[in-house]
Design a protein around this nucleic acid. Structure first.
Lengths: 151, 151
DNA sequence: TATGAAAATATTCGTTC
DNA sequence: GAACGAATATTTTCATA
């Protein structure tokens, strides 16, 4: 189980994973080795999944964000499987969740601008079989966008 | 401007930022120093925003994901500002985007389970002033969820 | 859990293209 | 300005107490 120190450590690493174990040890009142061992444990147990660099989307021309709600024409196993397999291939789709309610999937799509989005819709998304309908919602502003979950 | 090597480097770091410059240099056919200098440049220009650890939500009891669509009662400057300021304080809300369309905001919320979500709704979210209506959509399955944008 | 030595890595520097 | 290899500084890693 995770104790308070583990949780603190996870929160620190979610915010900046390039801190040295020495820096972490000072914040946690632990020795360098103790921090090191705890991190290794968290990695081994796959509580820490991976370490990544987060990129400023404005600077790489991928700041146009669209939420796309998708309904399939039917919910048979084959339709679901095919759709999901095809979605995984689309690099513009950063997230895709199967959801309950009025539609079947919510997709988060990052592209350069509206032109690129239209192109994506026409040539890639709607080329996937079994899509019944789509509804696009455009982001006007990013109020909050964090990868970390405070525990 | 970013050349092909920069883009490759960014993609590598988005996938694993703990690789040593030596490992990166082998994949990029560059010297260790050249890789080092390119990374420093990307950090300085804020193209790389930060380095973070990604946590397995299943293992920390935060795997219940809800998309919440919110409409404000009005769109005055004051209402928008107040709402956004309050949302930033809620640690359950990992993302919040101001959007066009049928509602004003899309929120992504991670909690433990439905009970915790109900509690969050009642005591935290709907306690915020100026919310007109909310509509919650629950994730059944995570099909794709990546922090990286391939460039 | 802590210490410290050994190994690996990051960082700086002088030089070349 | 970008790349390189050599040097130095720092950090990680691991055996041992």
């Amino acid at each position: 189980m995770l104790d308070t120190t583990d949780k603190k450590l996870i929160n620190l690493l979610q915010n900046d994973c390039k801190q040295t174990t020495k820096q972490l040890s000072l914040q946690l009142n632990l020795s360098v080795t103790a921090v090191y061992e705890r991190i290794k444990k968290l990695e081994k147990e796959r509580i820490i999944k991976k370490y990544v660099a987060l990129i400023n989307k404005n600077k790489i021309e991928k700041s146009f964000l669209v939420f796309c709600h998708i309904k399939l024409i039917q919910h048979s196993k084959e339709f679901v499987t095919t759709f999901e397999r095809e979605i995984l291939k689309l690099e513009e789709v950063s997230e895709c969740f199967h959801v309950s309610g009025d539609y079947d999937y919510i997709l988060k799509i990052y592209v350069k601008d509206m032109d690129e989005y239209r192109d994506f819709m026409v040539t890639k998304l709607t080329a996937i079989k079994y899509i019944g309908s789509t509804h696009s919602t455009f982001a006007i502003e990013e109020v909050k966008n964090t990868s970390s979950i405070i525990i």
